[in-house]
Computed example of a mutant assay.
Amino acid sequence: MKKFLLTTIAAGLFLAACGEETPKEETTAPAEETKQEETSNVKADLMKLYMSIPNTINANDADLNAFEGAIGDETADLAALKDPAVASAQATATAVEGIEVPESLVDQKEALETALADLKVIYEDKAAAITADDTAKLEETNVKYEEVDAQFNALLEEQGLIPSSIYNEVSM
């Protein structure tokens, strides 16, 4: 009887120990799934944000693009295009400033805000260059796009996404 009692107690302890391990495994699996979902959300939200940037710019920079496209065209009336181009550049800077970084991108927020701020400065500099009739400075602002593209591409590549160029998407 003592052996049966000891065997029953041992079996009970064994089952209790096994029963405690199962919830640990169950809590680990959802944590891993949550981490995968968070990574997936970061990628998706980063892509949504990145794709919204050229859309925001293109919604505001038509007159600026017309002005820049007319530079060097001897038949173009740059004087008539100047004021709308300045207004367009200023509106674009304001629109870029209004782009908000989603909460899910908390780890990338500082880098994204820096890149967006640099992008805003590009359009402020474009407005100033046009106002000052300084086409050399206007061309310099386009070179600054390389730096902004590099900032965004570093974030995209960090998430395993393909790099791109905002400049190529908005300079038409």
Score class of each variant (00 low, 15 high):
E68P: 05
N65H: 11
K43D: 04
T135Y: 08
A89V: 11
E103Y: 08
A87F: 08
D77Q: 07
T75F: 01
T131V: 15
L46N: 11
D107L: 04
E157S: 12
E113V: 07
A44D: 13
E68G: 07
Y123E: 11
L112V: 06
A79T: 15
A150V: 03
D118C: 02
D118R: 13
M51Y: 14
D125K: 14
Y123L: 09
A76V: 07
E113W: 01
Y145L: 08
V148K: 03
E74W: 00
N60L: 10
A128G: 09
D83F: 00
V42G: 00
T56L: 04
G69N: 05
A150N: 05
G69T: 05
A95T: 09
V42I: 14
E139H: 08
A79D: 14
K43Q: 14
L155H: 03
A66N: 10
N55Y: 07
I57A: 06
A111M: 05
M47L: 15
V96C: 11
L116V: 08
E110P: 00
L119D: 07
L64Q: 09
A76F: 04
A59W: 03
S40V: 01
D133W: 06
K144Y: 08
D73S: 04
Q90T: 15
E38L: 15
D125M: 09
E103T: 14
T56R: 05
